[in-house]
Amino acid sequence: MSIKIENLSFIYNPKGAFKKEALKNITLTINKGEFFGIIGHTGSGKSTLIQHFNALIMPQSGTLEVAGIKVVEGSKELKSLRAKCGMVFQYPEYQLFGETVEEDIAFGLINFIGKKTEKNPSGLTDQEIKERVKEAMELVGLSYNEFAMRSPFQLSGGQKRRVAIAGIIVTKPEILILDEPSSGLDPKGKQEILQLIRNLKETTSDTIIMISHDMDEIAENCSRVAVIAKGEIVMCMSPEELFTHEEALVGLSLDIPIVAKVRNALALKGIDVPYNRDYKVFAKTVAEKIAGGAK
């Protein structure tokens, strides 16, 4: 089990005049190896929830266990938790600061493992740091020779985002959390970033948690989805099953992929075929069903 949440609640400004209940009694288990999606409206509490996962926000009530580490105030394992559980914020390129791409990517590595010194014999040598940075850059599809010595501020938006993601995965986190990784990119950039995330699942981080507004992205990638509304988990199931609850989703101002809409409309007409994230496969099944029915 990767992440285990029990009865987690969180209130912003619990004593102040602007008291706001962000999470109510969340109970959720995310298993190792899952590609888990979280979907919900702005202000539904999804960002608050994921910031708990690497102890940027401490649980106020309820329990939380991530990668075998209990998240409690004052725990000495929080730093190693953050190394094991990488977090890519929304618009991660805004956190770049290094003079060179290499320096920026090495930041997390040096913070978590440290350079090799007499006091820190388990640290990394300059050569090892360079190797790790190179590896991370290649994982996000940036050539080390071409980009390592350039300033991150000279790069294009999509490249900056890759550098920022490389800066997270350089520590090889078991769990990778991404908050709307494709927002603000053009369609091609979106596809590339999502392909990159799928590759990362195969190589460095086999548990992925992704927040998204885009049901197509969720449908295409996730094995399970949680729908959050007003701080509560309303539904938690596979995308295929989720999309059969079209009315409930519309009630939460969420849309479903067009293929799922067609599936549901056909089901109402008596042609019940299973949803498939690949529209070509779906079309083929429908065509076969109709052709078969005509015989």
Partner: peptide
């Protein structure tokens, strides 16, 4: 928060 997530102290 973002830099804390990268282990900044």
């Amino acid at each position: 928060r973002a830099q804390k997530a990268r282990g900044a102290d």
